[in-house]
Amino acid sequence: MTEAPHNDTPALADEARRRFLKRAGLTAGFSLFAGSALAAGLPKALDEATSSERRWGILVDAGKCPEGCTACVDACFEEMGIEGPRVGDNHSRPDQDSQWIRKVSLKNEDTGHALALPVMCQHCTYPPCVDVCPTGASFKRADGIVLVDRHVCIGCRYCIMACPYKARCFVHEAIHDQEPYMPRGKGTAEGCTMCVHRIDHGMKPACVVACHEEGAGAMTFGDTNDPESAIAGKLRDNTTSAIRADLGTEPGIRYMGI
């Protein structure tokens, strides 16, 4: 109750942003704290509620994403404690293991043009999984991140049926040794969280970090509402598209080169 929700009015947040940017620009020493936060877009105080001022997104440049590189996938499994598909140390069959992100290889049926790209929860603006969820466990945060509140998930799997991107998974067996920051458990639906636990601490998602440091740097993360952000710039300057854009789900994950 000490942490009464703090309602941002748009004006306040805007002001905060301007002030922050100015301060960050002026104070060199500040960058020690602001470093990662700045890179991730806007800083959010740990106890501040998310607001629709921000819209987190990832831009994937399929042109840069090499076939065979799985840095993003490996990082995700590592971070989230998804052992199954990597280690095969569980009971589940391979087609029962969760994969929050996967590398999909494409080949154009007519031209033979081949490319590869990662697919994960697309964090839709109009997410079908949220619409169909009977208990409201599937929900979208104010900043556009689509999550499963696993405390109210009854495991009906309707969200998995509804997802156009095959991005929701169902946990088929008891899980042990979860990462403390990423609880997961049998009988509930789960999927990419865009690493909310990192974003809320001003860090980038694990896949994006790995893509830059071990992969080809094909992923850009940021606040698409912030015109100054790298992602907003790239979205402005390039032709980008979304998977199954025809469905009108308006994903937060966008692609270049497909």
Partner: peptide, 12 residues
């Protein structure tokens, strides 16, 4: 609960 994926360049 140390994050598994740590950025090598903290400022990135």
């Amino acid at each position: 609960g140390e994050l598994k994926v740590q950025s090598k360049e903290a400022s990135r």
